[in-house]
């Protein structure tokens, strides 16, 4: 399935490494982008591509926390709970999200839209509290902003409030 759809990408990835197994994470990441999680079928296919056994792929996949081995909601909300974010209100945000979505951390809403997770530092400690939703970062969060983001996601599948190329503090234009 991966091979049919992503034939060229896979060929290009394999060319980058002298040893096939190095393509493991790129292919696992690809499988997850495709289905939202890494299915057993995908792991078997990756094993075939890399000339490995399925258990070698499984063994590797279980090490990496970003790889979901079970299906999750359309939007994976991952809130950072490490110390630097916790100092500026991450815990309050997590509790509020639980109430707002009506689920606990680790659960998925009944409409299958949102899965809520807490994660460790995502490299935006100066702009916390923050969360990652699928590929995008959202920073300097408060309730109002999160409400808006969730609305946007429900409606459009994306939100303009996501972070662009990161810089903090922003450059100050020279005062005239």
């Amino acid at each position: 399935m991966l091979r049919e759809k992503h034939h060229q990408y896979i060929a290009a990835i394999l060319k980058r490494y002298p040893v096939k197994r190095s393509a493991m994470l790129p292919l696992l990441n690809l499988a997850q982008r495709e289905e939202g999680y890494v299915s057993e079928a995908a792991m078997k296919e990756i094993a075939a591509i890399l000339d490995l056994t399925p258990s070698q792929v499984y063994e590797t996949a279980t090490f990496y926390t970003m790889l979901n081995l079970k299906p999750i909601g359309t939007f994976h909300i991952q809130v950072c709970k490490s110390l630097m974010c916790a100092l500026v209100g991450a815990d309050e945000l997590i509790h509020w999200l639980e109430d707002h979505l009506g689920i606990k951390v680790g659960e998925t809403t009944s409409d299958n839209l949102f899965t809520l997770s807490v994660v460790e530092c995502l490299g935006s400690c100066a702009t916390g509290p923050m969360m990652q939703v699928n590929d995008d970062y959202y920073e300097r969060l408060d309730r109002q902003k999160v409400t808006q983001i969730l609305d946007d996601l429900r409606r459009n599948g994306t939100s303009p409030l996501k972070s662009g190329p990161f810089m903090c503090p922003e450059p100050v234009p020279p005062s005239s």
Binding site: L83, M84, C121, G123, S124, C125, F166, C168
Partner: peptide, 16 residues
């Protein structure tokens, strides 16, 4: 890999 809690400089260097 920049994953040490409290560190976010490499992200800025790469993205900007």
């Amino acid at each position: 890999d920049e994953s040490e809690p409290g560190t976010f400089k490499d992200r800025q260097l790469m993205e900007r």
